[in-house]
Structure formats: C-alpha cells, structure tokens
Amino acid sequence: MENNFLSLTNVWFKYDKEWVLSDVNLKITRNRIIGVIGPNGGGKTTLLKLIAGLEKPDKGTILFHNQKPGTPETIVRIGYVPQHATVRWTFPIKVSDAILLGKIGQKGKLSTPRKEDKERLSEIAQALNIENLLEKHIADLSGGQQQKIFIARALINRPELLLLDEPETGIDVAAQDLFFATLKDIHRRFDLTIIIVTHDLSVIPKICDEIACVNNTLFHHSSPEEALTCPNFDKHYGSHLEVIIHGKNIPHRLVHEHHDDEENK
C-alpha cells in the first residue's frame, strides 16, 4: 500500500503538438518533501497539474492511492496552490470566508462550514501564523500574506498531499527562511507529503528529502546529496550548477552559479 501513495508511470503529455513531458516515471512515498526544479518552460507546473488531475496524461498512468487524480475522492486529498493567483482581489470577502469557501463536502459540492471546519481553520491559522489576518478583507494583504492564505485554503480539506508551485514568490528574502521553516512545520504537524516547485535552489537542501529535476522529462530524482553525482545535470538544467555539501551540523547547500551571458530565456 505504502508504495502506491503516488506514482507516475511512462507519463507523456502535450498541450498542442509538442510533448511538454515525455516518459516521466516517478514514485513518491508518504511524508516526504520533494523539491522540483528545472528551467522556465521545463514542465514543472504541468507536472503538478497532472498530479492534481487538472490535466490528463496523453499516455501512461498517474495513480494516487491507486486512483487516477481528478475524482472527488482524490481532489479532497490533494491540496494545490497554483503558481499564479487567480482570485478577484476586489471581491468583497473576508480572509476566513475565503479559506472556508475551499471546503468540499459530499459529492464534490462546496459545503457550509461546520464546527469542525472552523476548528480546522484555527489550527491551520495557528500553524501558518495568520490568525491576525482572518478578519481582514482579502484585498488588504501583502504578497507574502496572500501566499499563506492560499496555502491555508489548500489545507482546509485535510489533504495528505500538498502541491506548491513556486510559493516563495512575493516573500522577501529575509522572510523566506521563516516561510520554509513554516512549511517544514506544517509537513510534520499535518503528516503532509509536499511537492514544491521552486527556483530557489538554496531551499532544496534546507527542507527537501528528495530532488526532482524536470526539463521535458524527469531527468533526475534522488536525495539532494546524490544530485551532486548526476553527470548530465548542467546540460539538462540549462545552466551551471554546483552542489556543495557541508558537514553534519551545517546545512547542505546547493549553489546555482549564475552566468549573465546565458540568462534564462
């Protein structure tokens, strides 16, 4: 059973004519944090959409608890925070109502919040440290606060798997450490498996148990330490990477060496 938490087998996917993802094989076990990296347009967001069930593979299978994603049963067990917020910021709604609105009840319908949902809300709010924002209007939040609200909304259905697409966007560098520590904390507290797409390579060694590199296909999947030994890493990622592993008590570090002449497209 444990092996069947999430598996992608020979997954191929295209929007139009060109394959965006080809022959992806990935197995993910419970209670891990997986960092997904790769160049712009490499298919990271697409990979999350496939796992969330928003897109269907053209070939191959994705199984989450032995079910194909996109059914009411899998939707409540997978929380998804998309890369780009799509809310209408002028909409007259309080933060707490915006979070509770994401609650799915029977038969995949939205449900009226009950006592246990409100308890869940305060539990999440405490974990994410957003209790003071709940009564605010949604438009009155800073970029970093907004990001936390979306995470809170994704957690309201008590998912087992949380998909985060570049959640560090909008969070200033000074606050990022705290933000990632918060992620680590909700991972433990709520028994969450987290798949996090990020461009911030320094995050990987700090919180991730595994690293997955995506550029049209999954070309590397291992522990952060082993990423060092991957011979084709640079070629696939499209720029030079250097992984530095420190001693036991010093955090691991994955350094992304930036060349101005080969700036990302």
Binding site: A52, G53, L54, G70, T71, P72, I75, Y80, P82, T86, V87, R88, F91, I93, A98, L101, G102, I104, G108, K109, L110, S111, T112, R153
Partner: peptide, 19 residues
Amino acid sequence: LKEFIMLSFDETYGRVLGL
C-alpha cells in the same frame, strides 16, 4: 450560493476543486 460565490471570487480555483 457557495458555488456562485466561488465563480465570482476565484473561478479557476473552483475548477481545481472539481466544480
């Protein structure tokens, strides 16, 4: 009501939730 509110507030997330 909740579905219409979701439609007006965040239609795309409504689709994420399978509505």
